[in-house]
């Protein structure tokens, strides 16, 4: 089974990286979802996969007996799932706010924090009249000045 998983997570990881490398941030988010699923799967399989009994101690017993699945990776993954959910929610909101400010989900056009090098060509805004990175960098310079 683990061998099968090894190939499955390989494909999942490849797919997620392909999505992460996109300049469409929605696809990047999808890549993030896929990557966290793959990572959890990796941890689970690395701890050994035993079909059947969950690590629950039977009534009257003092410890786990017989064949049971490995509890340690389960505890690790359980929190990892919740954390990657928190991360994803935050990233989603970030993309959404980025869209509100810059009118695009194209990461190539989001150059507010790192203004383009002199010879780099940044595409024009998708919607006419939207903030272009040129204006954006100007706005960053003005941040310190008092609001009119």
């Amino acid at each position: 089974m683990e061998t099968l998983v090894a190939f499955t997570v390989g494909v999942m990881a490849a797919g997620s990286v392909y999505l992460l490398l996109s300049h469409n941030l929605v696809r990047v988010l999808f890549g993030l979802i896929l990557l966290s699923n793959a990572a959890n799967f990796v941890i689970f399989a690395a701890g050994g996969m035993t079909e059947g009994l969950p690590p629950l101690i039977g009534l009257g017993e003092k410890a786990l007996t017989g064949v049971y699945s490995n509890p340690l990776p389960q505890a690790l993954i359980l929190t990892a799932i919740v954390i990657s959910f928190g991360l994803l929610a935050f990233a989603l909101v970030l993309v959404y706010r980025g869209y509100q400010e810059l009118g695009t989900v194209d990461s190539d056009r989001m150059r507010l924090a790192e203004p383009p090098h002199p010879d780099q060509d940044i595409p024009e805004p998708e919607e006419p009249g939207r903030l272009h990175v040129r204006d954006a960098s100007r706005r960053v310079e003005n941040l310190g000045s008092p609001q009119s």
């Binding site: 701890g47 629950l56 009534l59 786990l64 490995n70 505890a75």
Partner: peptide, 23 residues
């Protein structure tokens, strides 16, 4: 580690669900 937790989960952590006792 897993065996350590499996042995002590009930006797020291008073819980039958080992995963939850670890957490």
């Amino acid at each position: 580690l897993s065996e350590y937790f499996a042995e002590r989960s009930y006797t020291e952590g008073f819980g039958r669900n080992v995963v939850n006792v670890i957490l």
